[in-house]
Design a protein around this nucleic acid. Structure first.
Lengths: 122, 122
DNA sequence: CCATCTGTACTATGTATATTAATACAGTTA
DNA sequence: TAACTGTATTAATATACATAGTACAGATGG
């Protein structure tokens, strides 16, 4: 479920946060699903429990999960999160267009690169 | 010409590298233009000369500049660099499409966000 | 009630990176 | 020769990341 890439220069806790966000937003982990316990996941990944906790704290801060002392950490409702993610993607697209224009990438080149991406399968 | 953003979490030398890349790629600094000396720019930005040197070393490594001991650092030929930059932008666009698809952003939504960006002025 | 699981908090340590500081050396130029 | 260039080196400091160990509070099943 979770894999740490040690060649990745980003911190471990950040990789874990991002991976769970992905699993949650893609519906692989549904609402109220229990996450692995801090200690179990740390054991499984052979890293320190504190690093997992840091990731879980961040996930909760961002609204992806909720934690109950003594019970565990659980997936939150994802409707708003998915909407937010889509908005982020569209915003990133708009920003990229801005940069493309600044560096003289033509609209045709740009649209072409994008259409190819959408063309493949439905 | 160069401004350091201390609210930015990225290192100073990296901000300087990026800023010069921008100035070079946009033609604001043409080929063979002399860059500010390590010590002068350090003084102007109120930071350590070593930090500037780190930025200059990186710029040279990436082919944006060339340095001559005793003379100074100068802007390199930019034709290939600009081409490379455009390719990076198109590659980023392709990647963004991939992510958009994964999260269920429709082609229409996506193309719409992009067209608006290109629409404004020529 | 108790053992064992959960999240959470805290201190200490090791390490890597970024930055500053202070020199020093080599090459250019007026 | 003086004053400028890039370049190299060593040391000190600050911060972030990760590990290690311990502790506490709440939940739960026997």
């Amino acid at each position: 479920m979770i894999v740490i890439d040690y060649k990745d220069r980003r911190p471990i806790y950040e990789q874990i946060v991002e991976r769970f966000q992905e699993l949650i937003l893609k519906g692989i982990l549904g609402a109220d699903t229990q996450l692995p316990s801090v200690r179990n996941l740390a054991m499984e990944l052979s890293i320190n429990p504190n690093t997992i906790q840091k990731a879980y704290t961040e996930l909760e801060r961002q609204g992806y999960t909720y934690s109950v002392k003594g019970k565990g950490s659980f997936i939150a409702e994802t409707d708003i999160l998915l909407k937010k993610k889509k908005d982020e993607i569209l915003e990133a697209a708009t920003l990229l267009v801005k940069v493309a224009k600044e560096y003289g990438v033509s609209k045709d080149e740009f649209i072409n690169a994008i259409s190819n991406g959408f063309k493949e399968e439905a």
